[in-house]
């Protein structure tokens, strides 16, 4: 199973609780991370996700860009990206 397939099957809950049904692992994500993960699962581009964050969380473009970059790096270490 590829990292993107694994990411696609992760079950999201609105409170930020995430469950990977192939490994049984669970994760807790903050609202920013949930927004980014939703965007990735929907196949949105990085730029579109950054735009979503700036409008939803009232943060600047630079801060949103940094959050997305850090989170993508984190996903890579978890083999989810």
């Amino acid at each position: 199973m590829s990292a993107s397939e694994r990411l696609a099957q992760i079950v999201f809950h609105d409170d930020g609780f995430l469950f990977d049904p192939s490994s049984g692992e669970s994760f807790v994500a903050n609202p920013t991370a949930v927004e980014i993960l939703h965007g990735l699962q929907e196949g949105r581009s990085e730029a579109a996700i950054i735009a979503d964050l700036t409008s939803r969380f009232q943060v600047g473009d630079e801060e949103a860009r940094r959050d997305v970059a850090e989170f993508l790096a984190r996903l890579k270490t978890l083999q989810l990206s």
């Binding site: 199973m1 469950f19 049904p21 192939s22 490994s23 049984g24 692992e25 669970s26």
Partner: peptide, 23 residues
């Protein structure tokens, strides 16, 4: 199939979660 979420000092499952792993 399940994953052990917590085990006792003897290594016996105490909490677990069902999963579906293709492998």
């Amino acid at each position: 199939a399940m994953k052990k979420v917590s085990i006792t000092s003897l290594g016996k499952v105490w909490a677990a979660v069902t999963l579906k792993n293709p492998l």
